[in-house]
Nucleic acid binder design. Structure first.
Lengths: 217, 217
DNA sequence: AAAAAACTGGGTGTTTTAACGGTATTTTTT
DNA sequence: AAAAAATACCGTTAAAACACCCAGTTTTTT
């Protein structure tokens, strides 16, 4: 039986969700708290719950603060964020703070159940609507210079890989070895990129790669 | 009934997984393909499957290429990546290409089932082990930034200015002229920064400058 | 006021990078 | 099957980058 704790200052909402959780086979709500502070004061290191469901917006100690505290003190304790906030920053922040799932309060019960089951089984769960935000964030800022975008699409896999290598402090000779190519070939790659990207030095290539998020900084 | 297509060049693996999928209630494998090319040639716009499970490493047309093609031509067609590759680049790349799930081949059957169910129900599913990679990616390398912060505070105005010049495609000689210094002095600045920042090439300096937002990209 | 630190400039090398000239092989297109 | 494109490769030369050595001047510290 998965022992669940609910942390949310909206009592009605919390109790509704709790009854839903109790209706799921294998899940049982063993405690409810009004906010993060109440929750961590209640926590007993010898008898941790299996799963915590919590809101972000709460008085005294909000979901974000609680998440950081939990990640620091009980990194193995799984928690899912259940909230109405679907803005990118909230999502990213909670993910970074270690939440295993992020479910919107206006999701369907089935989504909710999926999230619980996925999280209890080594996974993470994020609503599809939110997923887009995350992917955008992985991309970085898509508002790249359009002219560069078209140049970018003219680069092949190998050139992209080369650009990534350029953004290290390896010499061309070392990069050649890494890519299993002759240094001469690397010379050719460089020259081709100089031409394509209209630059004249490795620095120019590196800056392009970073601007276009070919490498993560 | 969720109609599933399996795309993987490892026949044994594919057939094993297919039989497992068939054993799941509500799922049925309706087609198997050896690679992306075979798969998209088989695809019938009038009768799309509900879910595609595919490997990354495949001949002729690999998972990444197939993912991009699918995202372009049938953005609503859901697919899950099932692979042995758990390196960050593969994961990020597939996520960016629109995969709804990422499951390692050495996962347990239950994980696998969770992934299928989560994806069919508006979610995405990613193994916990992989999740770390994604979060690290969202972070950027924040851990490093903190240690670099102290290094940064040891740099003087002139060095900062020099770092900014480094992030252009000017040569040291040209930078010297811009800063009204002798090229020799610039040499000294560079060497001092190499020492302070523990790097050994201009590229390293440029990356530092960008990471620490000394220059705006 | 003396010592230390920081800033600036210099000499002399080696290594790396960049620009120029190409060729041979495979893959794709026509 | 021929043409075109893409891929991998090579040599030479000049410039730039990097590594080491150094010294004089100014600023800061003691």
């Amino acid at each position: 039986m998965v022992e669940v704790v609910m942390v949310d200052d909206h009592v009605m909402m919390r109790q509704c969700l709790a009854s839903v959780v109790n209706s799921f086979e294998g899940f049982k709500v063993i405690h409810e708290a009004n906010n993060g502070k109440e929750f961590i004061e209640w926590l007993n290191p010898d008898k941790l719950p299996d799963l915590v469901l919590m809101d972000i917006n709460m008085p005294y100690m909000n979901g974000h603060e609680t998440a950081i505290w939990l990640s620091t003190h009980y990194p193995k304790l799984k928690f899912i964020t259940i909230t109405m906030q679907n803005d990118e920053r909230s999502i990213i922040r909670m993910l970074r703070s270690g939440t295993r799932g992020y479910v919107l309060k206006d999701s369907e019960i089935l989504d909710f159940k999926q999230a619980l089951e996925a999280v209890m089984n080594k996974g993470i769960y994020i609503n599809t609507v939110l997923y887009k935000h995350i992917i955008d964030n992985l991309h970085g800022h898509q508002a790249n210079l359009e002219t560069e975008q078209s140049v970018l699409s003219n680069l092949n896999e190998r050139e992209i890989e080369f650009l990534r290598w350029l953004c290290t402090d390896k010499s061309y000779k070392e990069i050649a070895a890494e890519m299993y190519l002759s240094p001469r070939t690397i010379d050719g790659y460089r020259d081709a990129l100089f031409e394509k990207l209209k630059v004249a030095s490795r620095i120019g290539l590196v800056l392009f790669a970073i601007r276009n998020e070919i490498v993560k900084i």
